[in-house]
Amino acid sequence: MCNEYEQHTSYVEYCKVVQNLALGVPIKETELDMPPGDDIRIGDMAPVIRAAGDNIVELAQMKFGFPPTRAHGPLFNYRSQRRHFGASHRCLVPASAFFEFTGKNHPRVKHRFTLVDAPFMAIAAIWRPGRKGQPSAFAMLTTEPGSDVKPFHNRQVVILRPGDWKAWIDLDEPEEELLRPLPAGSLNVEWQVATPHPTWKQDGF
C-alpha cells in the first residue's frame, strides 16, 4: 500500500488551482504552510487541505497515519469501497508523486507515480483530531487499482482532479462517483532500485 509520497508543490501553484475553483484561502497562510518533502512516510508531519469555512480551504499540518491501537499498528491507508464518509472529517493530501514498491527481497524496486497532465495531485483522505497531546492525523483512502497501477499493486490511493476537490470536501456527490481510479494513461511511472541515491527510469507505457 502507499506508505510514502513526496510533496514539492509550490504554494503559488497551489493558490492558482484554488483560485480557479473559486475557493478562498486564509489571509495569514503563506508558503511556510506548504513545506516540501522528498520522502514523506508514516509518522511524518505534512500539510493537508481541509475546509475552513464557507468556500474557504486551509492547509493544516497533520501526522501521516492514525495512532496505533493495541491490536494494530498505525492506520495510514483506509479502504473506501462500500463506506460512507458523511460523518468523517474529509481532506486532501497535496502530493507531487506517490510510491509503490515491488519485490519481496531487498533492495526492492520503487515506483514513482505522477499525473501526466498536472504538476501535482490531491489524494482523498480523512483526518481525526489529536488526542492526549497527539497531533491531528490523516489516512489516505484507497480503491481498486486502475490500469496504470494494477501491474504494481492490487490497491491504489484515490487521486482527485481539481474539479472534484470541493465535491469531496463538502461531499455533495456520491462517494462511489468520486472515490475511484483515474482512467488508463492518467499516470506516468518511473522506477528505481530502492537505494539511498535514486536514479529514476521511465517505464515503457
Score class of each variant (00 low, 15 high):
83 R>H: 10
175 E>P: 00
102 T>G: 03
138 F>V: 02
42 I>N: 04
25 V>M: 14
17 V>D: 09
91 C>G: 12
112 R>S: 06
127 W>R: 09
112 R>A: 07
151 P>T: 08
3 N>G: 14
36 P>M: 15
52 A>V: 08
192 Q>T: 15
167 A>S: 08
39 D>H: 11
177 E>R: 06
51 A>P: 06
200 W>Q: 02
94 P>L: 01
29 E>M: 15
7 Q>M: 06
101 F>C: 09
113 F>K: 01
155 R>T: 07
97 A>T: 02
100 E>A: 03
133 G>C: 03
92 L>Y: 02
118 A>S: 15
142 T>A: 15
87 A>G: 05
27 I>S: 13
105 N>H: 13
32 L>G: 06
162 P>K: 03
198 P>A: 05
122 A>Q: 09
83 R>M: 10
93 V>D: 08
152 F>T: 03
200 W>V: 01
157 V>K: 01
146 G>D: 10
34 M>N: 14
174 P>F: 04
76 F>D: 04
77 N>Q: 09
9 T>G: 04
111 H>F: 13
46 A>W: 09
113 F>D: 07
106 H>Q: 13
168 W>V: 04
5 Y>V: 02
14 Y>V: 02
40 I>W: 04
132 K>L: 07
60 A>T: 06
17 V>K: 05
189 V>E: 11
50 R>G: 08
65 G>Y: 00
18 V>I: 11
196 P>H: 04
34 M>R: 12
198 P>V: 06
61 Q>P: 03
177 E>S: 05
158 V>S: 14
14 Y>N: 02
128 R>G: 11
46 A>L: 10
180 R>W: 01
63 K>N: 03
111 H>G: 05
45 M>H: 05
125 A>W: 00
1 M>K: 00
123 I>P: 10
15 C>K: 09
133 G>R: 08
159 I>V: 15
118 A>W: 05
170 D>W: 10
153 H>S: 12
66 F>V: 04
21 L>M: 11
175 E>K: 01
148 D>W: 03
116 V>F: 15
155 R>A: 04
195 T>M: 10
49 I>K: 11
148 D>Q: 02
157 V>R: 00
60 A>V: 09
177 E>A: 03
156 Q>C: 14
127 W>E: 09
200 W>E: 02
